[in-house]
């Protein structure tokens, strides 16, 4: 087989160029088509992203792991009964199932903040990063005297599920940790969304977001520090969203990307 080398440049030159971008440049070719090795590399990345979307988070293991946080833990379902429905009906992933509302109701007490962990579009993101992020964040919240509602774990949840959970628990604000839409290079990005006084009328313009939380992206200590900053400023100024800038970073972290 006359498998051709990447066109016209030595492999050293392509190696140098590849340090400048994560784009798939200088791929080996045969004729006009991709050679087998880069074909399979691509397919592996896509398979990982698909698995991240389709796998279910093991929330019972997760609940056991967070038992040490000294917070009640409640696991509930959104109104989307399964993954195909969840993908086709984002409106259902933003609402609680009826039994979920009944489960939250007895816990309704006025608090500062509800923390919600939802599967979103990447089970891997939640399983890998939600626990270490909480381990970094919770001591900061304790030190700042935040009064916390029970920790709520949501199956088949979108970002706006927090707008249903917080009022049901009597919390004034909400942080939603959620698996982001997986890319080929990063199937396990976790997002954190902060909303002050969420209601069913809240839009994305009313949230702040820290996205790309993962080992090769925004690391846990930085993500936790930025979250703590956003929460402090949100509580002090009584608002979230486009008018609340993440000045801990030097520029805006108001929500500017579609997330679900």
């Amino acid at each position: 087989m006359n498998r051709e080398k990447p066109p016209t440049l030595t492999s050293d030159a392509w190696s140098t160029l590849r340090t400048l971008t994560t784009a798939r440049i200088g791929l080996a070719r045969s004729g006009a088509s991709l050679a087998t090795a880069p074909l399979l590399d691509f397919r592996l990345a896509h398979a990982r992203a698909r698995d991240a979307v389709n796998q279910a988070v093991d929330f019972s293991a997760f609940a056991a792991a967070v038992a040490g946080f000294d917070l009640p833990v409640l696991t509930v379902d959104s109104a989307a009964p399964d993954r195909p429905t969840y993908l086709a009906r984002p409106d259902l992933g933003r609402k609680l199932a009826d039994p979920a509302r009944a489960m939250l109701a007895p816990h309704a007490v006025a608090t500062d903040l509800a923390i919600v962990v939802a599967d979103g579009l990447s089970a891997q993101a939640v399983e890998r990063h939600a626990l270490p992020l909480l381990q970094a964040l919770l001591p900061m919240l304790k030190a700042a005297h935040w009064d916390l509602a029970p920790l709520v774990l949501v199956r088949q949840g979108r970002v706006a599920i927090g707008d249903a959970v917080a009022p049901a628990l009597g919390a004034r604000s909400v942080v939603v940790l959620i698996g982001e839409r997986p890319g080929l290079s990063a199937p396990d990005s976790l997002g954190a969304y902060v909303t002050w006084r969420p209601t069913s009328a809240t839009t994305d313009a009313g949230r702040n977001c820290i996205s790309n939380i993962r080992s090769e992206g925004v690391r846990y200590p930085e993500a936790a520090a930025r979250l703590a900053y956003l929460l402090r400023e949100m509580r002090r100024r009584g608002l979230s969203g486009v008018s609340l800038k993440d000045e801990s970073l030097g520029d805006s972290a108001a929500l500017d990307a579609p997330h679900d």
């Binding site: 784009a23 798939r24 791929l27 070719r29 088509s33 991709l34 880069p38 896509h46 890319g183 080929l184």
Partner: peptide
Amino acid sequence: VPGADDVMLGYQSTSFHDALAMRD
């Protein structure tokens, strides 16, 4: 798109190679 993988927008499109294959 290099290798059909848009590393900024996070979606898959068609590659330089795909267009060449169609032309040929």
